[in-house]
Amino acid sequence: MSFESELRNRLHGAARRADAESDYYEETAVADNVITRRRAQRRNRAAVLVSAAAVLLIGVAVPAIAGRLPAGAPVAGPAPVSSAAQQTGEPPSATNGPEPTPSSATSSPPASSGARAGCPSSGESIPAGTNSKPTIDVDGDGRPDTAFFSEQPGAQNGFTFGVRTASGGVVRSSMGLSGSPVERSVLFADVTGRGEVIALASDGRQVQLWAVSTCRLIPVQNAQGQQYTFDLGYSGYGTGVGCADADGDGTRDLLGLKLVTDSGGSPTSVERTIIALNGPHAANGARSIVPAPTAAEAARAGSITCGDLTMAADGVSSGH
């Protein structure tokens, strides 16, 4: 192996091994930190401009006024002024005090501090008659949330599903109507166990992939720009969805599963395709084959699961 190739391999290896502990919550916390810092910088700049303008005004106005006073009258010196509020003579208060400095604004919780604030309460409640069920902690506040699924006959998007968080927020979206006669259902799951929350919404023929981010349900797109869907045996691409560490890197992967059977219908293998999740995008990754699957593996390849969660036991359905 040439030195250049060896160097290339070592650079990639060192970089890969160094960031194994990064997680979804950490990334969003970093983004929020950047946004907060930028806002604080802008506020500070505005405050400095206002102060500078005020000082300038005093510098011009006071001598001008002093020039009009009769000789011997006391003249106020240019007092140090630090805020527009003081210019108006108002007492300093909590609301018109100095702007936060960047350092105070960046003192948000450390990136890996665990629980975050839940989704803000919207005052919405789950409509009466809607099917609901306790689900995983979707918003990262450390408290379990409630998944719901409702059918709205006659509406353009006939099925609404989502989560009401323990903090009172509601995250919802809708599924279009398809010809599938079976009930719709949704399963919320944390793929990696580190806050990479997805929703698998099924109409019995296929499963739509959604991502939950910053209190929103976002359709995950494939390379062609369409919503990523898993086949449930109707198009020949797959038969189920699962989550397992397929590449042995210690982190659970989202998997598209396909149960292969012989002519007599007996399972011969399970094809597993890693779905590489990348924010609102997903792409098919490495594929592996599990030969001679056990009965449990075969059953799993024909269903919608993620780790210990199953659509049948943990999902919520439209229930018709």
């Binding site: 960031d19 990334e27 983004a31 950047v34």
Partner: peptide, 14 residues
């Protein structure tokens, strides 16, 4: 921006 950070911060960090 949040999506970008979620998707690319790790590669930037490397």
């Amino acid at each position: 921006f949040r999506w970008f950070v979620v998707a690319h911060r790790r590669s930037l960090l490397r």
